[in-house]
Design a binder for these strands. Structure first.
Lengths: 232, 232, 232, 232
DNA sequence: GATGAATGAGGTTTCATTCAT
DNA sequence: TATGAATGAAACCTCATTCAT
């Protein structure tokens, strides 16, 4: 399977998800919601996201959401079949804008001049993004870990842009002889992306453990930079 | 906080966990179980572990465990306050033996001769360990992700030995000038350990994505090796 | 602690209880119930009271109440956290109207003319009240005996009006020289009220024992009357 | 029904209870327990009584008793069919010795000299007895209130001696013209005994309410004394 | 569009009680 | 005699979900 193929596949998946999403915009009785309905829907989504900061995904009940949102369970079911569906929408929204954001951390950067500095900006970007969206990312990771395909796809989708950019970057570096021929761009990109994502997700843990954010960023950056110029 | 302090802290924590464990060995009526009771307890634990392969943690019910184990819910509650407690015991057991296993992948290796070969063995060890204990590790990751301190501690405990060994290794390499003075051993060790654990946890994903296990192992190894000799 | 103080304290307590009551009027999901909901709630209360005539408090299960009321346990829990809560509401209702009823047996009577006749009406009133509300009073006594503060307070509240009236009455009698100076109004009132309540509660026992209601009433009355004019 | 008849009936009942008791002395398998068995039985009874001080009757479980007694539920069932049976034995023991104790407070006293002083000793005796045996008396009252015939009988038995003595006393007083002919000795005795028992049971409540024990005793005594010489 | 109410369904939990040793 | 173990049976309680208004 070529990189392009995979990419198209992903794009298709996301389109399907969005189509689903649009379908779910219709209320339960088939009517397309008007301005007021959409506002309610939005309020429910926002409340859901807010509650994810407070409680666990497991403990997130329809009643809680609606009580907090100042509405009733029956209303919730007009817009979502269940809690998971609402979270799925939120996750899709995150993927939609986040994917590009993470990708742009890598492309449109000049990696030739001061690779370490660029890598540092990448690491910073990851740390920022994870910190900003942690409550939602946590749920995505969780559901993916539990085996839910849809969340796993969204997770992949979120990282895909950056991963692909990294892939291209590594490819170039191999071509330019900065990395040994044996290096597999897809694998290297995948592992580096994994590392960035995972470490960003555990930033708090590292800090508790005595590794401050700055040190963490520098280390992430160093490993990325070293991995791009191992033949040096 | 010095490395030694942290280490001691961890040891204390684990001792506390084990003490708790022994306390929970008493049945509900306060009696210390005999041979037959212990056998039943073991059977329940084994069944629990087996079911974690089939179903999700969320969906793991006491009824299911006891039905599968050929006993009744009441019996389960004689040995564990709830499902979580049983899983916690399993997780503690894994940590207990796994911690040393992972640590030994790194210490007692000669890193001077052929670092890449050693790193490959390390990566292989991680991949093996995660594959062998995936169903349980998944639950530990999950519960830790949900914020459960006890599972988080167990997770930390599992990786701690290896992490500490890696820390020492990096330290030596810095001292020997193979890594720049700016490299922070604790941070580098932490990030590398994170990477190894996370990638091992996602092996299946990588394979689905077109990166076979062998390639994955080599890439993990390469990044570790590069990170230990970046000044080369 | 002065009599007025105690009285105010009691009033406060009762106000608190009523406030709680109103708070508990909200259904489980935080919503204030409407006409239909209130009707259901009322039906559940009535059924609860009815069942207290048949079975014991200990044996009163949510399932029984709801089955009799023609609804489901889930519905019960929408209005009350448990059986006790429902009984508490019933008890509070009884206290609310019963307190005044018992009090009025003593005040607004002319005790000067024919004390024995008045005392007989008082005794009759106690016997009637206990007979009419026996199933509920029994539960209050029971729960109070078991140490439940809330029921103890309700029991006190039920008797307080009458007790206070009796206190004033004894006070007057002492002032008028019909009782020795050494008589303590609060104590005499308390003991007489206790006697009336306890004997009324055991009316059936006395009858089984060969003391018919009329004789019982006359004796209660006689002891009250004697106690109000002991210096004769 | 004459007083003597009632008395005999009671005596019979108690004999029956004791016979039951003796029957229950046999263990479940029919064997008559030996010294060791009796010790165990006694230990279970004592533990039961001790726990009644701590927890409620409702909350008294077989497991608690046996755990506290350092034995197992199975052992308990060798001596008693259920918790109630054990409590019943304790209650019967109390009745057995208590009945005479309370009776002797009234008979063998010279009521002619200083009636008030004698009445004071009686009141004191009641207060003492209730204070000393409150945890058990509370349970008896409770079970009787719930309608359990056996406990009701034991309660009656406990008071019967004193009640009968009081009956005789009132009878004498009527005969001697100190009380009006209309006074019914049985009723007066019953009501006074009730009053003494109930007030003694609520001593703590009175103290909380501002009536100290001494005042309470004097008031109980005064009402008894007044009631014995109302024609004065 | 919104929502009061009601409830089916199912897992949790607790004990009293019994056996086999 | 004593007691480890096991368990049937019965409530409890919670939610997701659905109507009728």
């Amino acid at each position: 399977m070529s990189t392009e193929d995979r990419e198209e596949l992903l794009a298709d998946d996301r389109a399907a998800l969005l189509a689903d999403d649009r379908a779910e915009l219709r209320a339960v009785d088939g009517r397309v919601p008007g301005r007021r309905g959409l506002a309610t829907r939005r309020r429910l989504l926002d409340t859901t996201l807010a509650l994810l900061n407070t409680s666990t995904y497991r403990d997130l009940k329809v009643v809680d959401i609606t009580r907090t949102a100042g509405t009733s369970p029956a209303t919730f079911y007009q817009y979502f079949p269940d809690v998971e569906a609402a979270v799925l929408v939120l996750a899709a929204e995150l993927t939609e804008h986040g994917s590009g954001e993470l990708r742009s951390l890598i492309v449109a950067q000049n990696w030739d001049d001061d690779p370490m500095a660029v890598a540092r900006r990448v690491a910073d970007g990851y740390l920022d993004f994870w910190q900003a969206h942690w409550s939602l990312i946590r749920v995505i990771d969780l559901a993916a870990l539990e085996g839910d395909e849809r969340f796993r796809d969204l997770r992949t989708g979120l990282l895909h842009g950056a991963n692909q950019a990294m892939d291209a970057l590594v490819d170039t570096h191999v071509a330019e002889g900065r990395l040994p021929e044996t290096a597999r761009p897809a694998a290297v990109a995948g592992v580096l992306t994994s590392m960035l994502a995972h470490v960003a997700a555990h930033r708090q843990g590292f800090e508790n453990w005595g590794v401050p954010r700055e040190q963490l960023r520098d280390t992430m950056a160093a490993i990325v930079a070293w991995s791009l110029s191992a033949a040096g």
